[in-house]
């Protein structure tokens, strides 16, 4: 018999904080797959885990920082990016990864996102986009599709959603990719690429929220989400991010931006070197 109820530890166990699995996420929630993909990337890169800091915000995916066996911090709602900026600038040797949700990063924290991207601070931002505020019971958010029903759009959403890859590209991110949780391998490869890249990197992961959004929007079960992703996803590497809007019919995925630009840390280092030796005295 090939199958067994195993006593052998899961190979990713060393990358997960002890006693935290099972996690709090719902059956079929994409956040678990994102965690899986993220720690797989860490494992495959063979990075020094001492130099990884995982920062999260509020919402379901916010709990991810507590699950990774690295230094980690679970901030207030919307603030993982500025917190991560402080960490990165205080110790540029650290690989600082923000993993948070669409509401956290683009509603309450939207301003922080665009400015960190503009400055090209070398933090990596992974967004679990599940189209709504799952943890608080499924309210409308900045990526909720037009006309979609949520707890706070009982008559259908009248707001246009963000196209996150376009926003990231326009804000100055040097690496931008989008995948769904069905594209696990590609997701892992993108995370690996982002971790190794200098500068502000952004990966959007379109993720199922079966228990909350799935019900309100009538998309349905976790499997219905995944089947939608399978049917609608079109890989369009390096296509125009402005044209990458997510619709019911089409989810453009792929790498959209991969460019080089001096990072804030590099320019800061240069400026500091220049400033050393020039002392402003008192009066």
């Amino acid at each position: 018999m090939a199958e067994q109820t195993t006593q052998i530890a899961h190979p990713l166990e060393p990358f997960l904080r002890k006693t935290t699995i099972p996690h709090i996420w719902c059956p079929g929630c994409g956040d678990g797959t994102i965690l899986n993909s993220f720690v797989t990337a860490l494992k495959e890169l063979e990075v020094n885990l001492d130099k990884i800091a995982v920062i999260s915000g509020i919402g379901c995916i916010g709990r991810i920082a507590g699950y990774t066996n690295t230094d980690s911090f679970h901030t207030t709602h919307g603030r993982p990016i500025p917190f991560a900026v402080g960490v990165k600038l205080a110790n540029p040797e650290l690989n600082v990864i923000v993993i948070s949700g669409d509401g956290d990063l683009f509603a309450i924290g939207g301003n922080h996102f665009i400015h960190a991207a503009r400055r090209n601070i070398g933090i990596k931002v992974i967004c679990s986009n599940n189209f709504n505020y799952g943890m608080t019971g499924g309210q409308q958010g900045p990526t909720t599709p037009l006309a979609s029903r949520t707890a706070t759009t009982p008559f259908g959403n009248i707001e246009h959603p963000f196209n996150l890859v376009h926003l990231a590209a326009a804000s100055g991110a040097v690496y931008v990719a989008r995948w769904t949780t069905l594209h696990v391998r590609r997701m892992t490869e993108s995370i690996k690429k982002a971790i190794q890249k200098e500068g502000f990197s952004f990966i959007e992961i379109v993720s199922p929220c079966p228990e909350i959004y799935g019900k309100a929007s009538k998309i349905g079960t976790a499997m219905d989400f995944m089947n939608w992703f399978k049917k609608a996803s079109v890989i369009q590497n390096f296509s125009d991010p402005a044209q990458a809007e997510i619709t019911a019919e089409k989810i453009p995925v792929g790498e959209f931006v991969d460019v080089e630009k001096p990072t804030f840390e590099k320019l800061l280092r240069e400026m500091t070197a220049q400033a050393q030796g020039k002392v402003t005295g008192g009066a």
Partner: peptide, 25 residues
């Protein structure tokens, strides 16, 4: 899940990679 066609497995690892709950490898 249960394993019904073990001989067909190519160890592609997709089940392991997609599992949100670290329940299969």
């Amino acid at each position: 899940p249960k394993v019904v066609n073990p001989e067909k497995c190519t160890i592609c690892g997709f089940c392991e990679a997609i599992c949100p709950d670290f329940a299969i490898f």
